[in-house]
């Protein structure tokens, strides 16, 4: 059963990544783009976990955790740049 369900989920996740990329291109403002990037990294996280289940490999866990950490830090850094015009004060 998983052989059918996982490709279906991959399609659903790819659709959501596409919609997010459309928002990333459309904007209209900088915070919208940052929000789209934030959503994009969370979606990538879900895709990696899904891919790990598909291959039956636990190795992808570390990659997912690293993406979560880096994505959060970069979102906050860019948002802080928008807010103050500077990252490290």
């Amino acid at each position: 059963m998983l052989d059918y369900v996982i490709p279906l989920c991959l399609v659903l996740m790819s659709l959501s990544v596409l919609l997010t990329v459309v928002r990333l291109i459309k904007g209209p403002d900088l915070p919208d783009r940052v929000l789209a990037l934030d959503t994009l990294y969370i979606n990538a996280l879900a895709l990696i976990v899904l891919f790990g289940i598909w291959l039956g490999s636990g190795l992808f866990f570390e990659a997912a955790l690293l993406i979560a950490v880096m994505g959060f830090v970069s979102t906050v850094a860019v948002a802080k740049y928008l807010l103050r015009g500077d990252i490290i004060e």
Binding site: L8, L12, M13, L15, S16, T20, I42, L50
Partner: peptide, 17 residues
């Protein structure tokens, strides 16, 4: 759980769009 998770992610993306 997989289908529920991807549906929620899709709904989030639709909302963003």
């Amino acid at each position: 759980f997989l289908v529920a998770g991807s549906l929620f992610a899709l709904i989030g993306a639709i909302g963003l769009y």
